[in-house]
Simulated scan of single mutants.
Amino acid sequence: MTMWKITSGRGSRLTKEFVENNVVAVGLDDETDFTSVTSREEMRALVAQRVPSLTEKQVIVAGSQWWRFLNELQIGDEVLVYEPDTRNYHFGEISGPARFELGLIPELPVVRSVSWRTEVPRDALETTTKNSLGAVLTLFKVPADAEMDVKRVVTGEKGSLQADDTGDLDAEADLDPFSDIEGLALERVKDRINALSWDDMQELVAALLRALGYRTSISAAGPDRGKDIIASRDGFGFERPRIVVEVKHRRGQMGSQEIRSFLGGRHADDRGLYVSTGGFTKDAHYEAERASTVTHLMSLDELAKALIEQYDQLDEDGRRLLPLTKIYWPA
């Protein structure tokens, strides 16, 4: 039995579709059926024809990955797919052969059925495992040490890692190292944010609001009646609208009850911002959408993206909590 990591589209944006449809999927585009390809060479030729912008080495790597999806993934093999919003890896088992199914997963029409078993929190994994699973390859065998770590979390066992097999990761040498540098950087930033204490998280959210031109007032520790931060243009909350902010820094999604509690007692012209590093349930989003008070639910993924976008405007307090270095490379 082998464990594989599969990326659900650029930025792992299709993970929910994978899980809801009980599949993993790959594709050259939204219409090419390559399930009848009979050799790696034929697959590479098809990749070169359908995606002419790829270099020769990228064609070799991509062709090999799609070939493996068809022929090397076996029924019973384990598979991981990452979901950025929840920071969890969905862990499942391949339960069917490759097939062409147009329209099931956008842009990825070659699928294999999966029986999803559980979720593995990224924050429960060793740093070396996080780095291994962040590789830019679309499909690869999980290195032995990372596989052991994932199974340690799945089974609840404790122990140190022993193996040092690098799996397929050496194949990355054939890829453009910057091909998904933004996605990899975003996950590292989220790791740093998630490691903050609750107090520091609250301060970081306040720093983001100040970067956006607001003045902020942070509630003292203790009962806050559903508000951790008040943001307004004048700094006192007299000038409307004011933004009332709740910050939840914990594992686990916030549900509709938490959103209702937050919205209770809000003024009609208030604006609500609810930040949850554990994300939100569908019911929570529905509750916020139908509320009379305009309310935005911000996940860790959105928070990290907003901080990166506004980083040049962050004050010293914000940069102290989240020190980042800007890099440049050819577009």
Score class of each variant (00 low, 15 high):
1 M>G: 13
3 M>D: 00
3 M>E: 07
4 W>N: 00
5 K>D: 00
6 I>T: 04
7 T>Q: 14
8 S>Y: 03
10 R>F: 11
11 G>M: 06
15 T>D: 12
20 E>V: 04
20 E>D: 15
20 E>K: 07
23 V>T: 12
23 V>A: 08
24 V>Q: 00
25 A>H: 12
27 G>Q: 00
28 L>Y: 12
29 D>N: 15
30 D>H: 10
31 E>L: 04
32 T>N: 01
39 S>M: 01
42 E>I: 02
43 M>Y: 04
43 M>C: 04
44 R>K: 13
45 A>Q: 14
48 A>K: 15
50 R>P: 02
51 V>L: 15
53 S>G: 03
54 L>D: 06
55 T>I: 09
60 I>E: 15
62 A>V: 09
65 Q>S: 03
65 Q>M: 06
68 R>A: 12
69 F>Q: 02
70 L>I: 05
72 E>T: 11
74 Q>S: 11
74 Q>H: 11
75 I>Q: 14
76 G>N: 13
76 G>K: 11
77 D>S: 00
78 E>T: 08
79 V>Y: 03
84 P>H: 05
85 D>P: 01
90 H>V: 09
93 E>M: 10
93 E>W: 00
98 A>Q: 13
98 A>W: 09
98 A>V: 04
99 R>L: 00
99 R>K: 15
101 E>Y: 07
103 G>S: 10
106 P>T: 12
106 P>H: 13
107 E>W: 09
108 L>T: 07
111 V>E: 05
114 V>T: 06
120 V>S: 09
121 P>M: 12
122 R>W: 03
125 L>Y: 12
127 T>M: 09
128 T>H: 13
133 L>C: 06
135 A>C: 10
137 L>E: 09
138 T>P: 00
139 L>Q: 08
141 K>F: 01
142 V>H: 02
144 A>C: 03
152 R>S: 09
154 V>E: 12
157 E>F: 05
158 K>L: 14
160 S>M: 13
160 S>P: 11
165 D>L: 11
165 D>M: 10
168 D>Q: 08
169 L>P: 03
169 L>N: 05
173 A>K: 14
178 F>Q: 11
179 S>V: 13
179 S>F: 06
187 E>W: 14
190 K>T: 07
191 D>M: 11
200 D>Y: 05
200 D>I: 02
201 M>Y: 04
201 M>S: 15
202 Q>M: 12
202 Q>G: 14
203 E>F: 10
204 L>N: 15
208 L>F: 05
210 R>N: 01
211 A>R: 07
215 R>G: 06
219 S>F: 03
235 G>D: 08
237 G>M: 01
242 R>S: 15
246 E>Q: 15
252 G>I: 06
252 G>D: 08
254 M>S: 14
254 M>F: 01
265 G>D: 02
268 A>Y: 02
270 D>G: 00
271 R>N: 04
273 L>E: 04
275 V>Q: 08
275 V>A: 10
276 S>V: 02
276 S>P: 02
276 S>T: 01
277 T>I: 05
279 G>P: 02
282 K>R: 14
284 A>K: 08
287 E>T: 10
288 A>P: 03
288 A>V: 02
290 R>H: 08
292 S>L: 01
294 V>Q: 09
295 T>I: 03
299 S>M: 01
299 S>T: 12
300 L>G: 03
302 E>A: 15
302 E>S: 13
303 L>P: 00
309 E>V: 07
313 Q>Y: 11
314 L>M: 11
320 R>M: 13
324 L>E: 10
329 W>P: 14
329 W>D: 10
330 P>L: 12
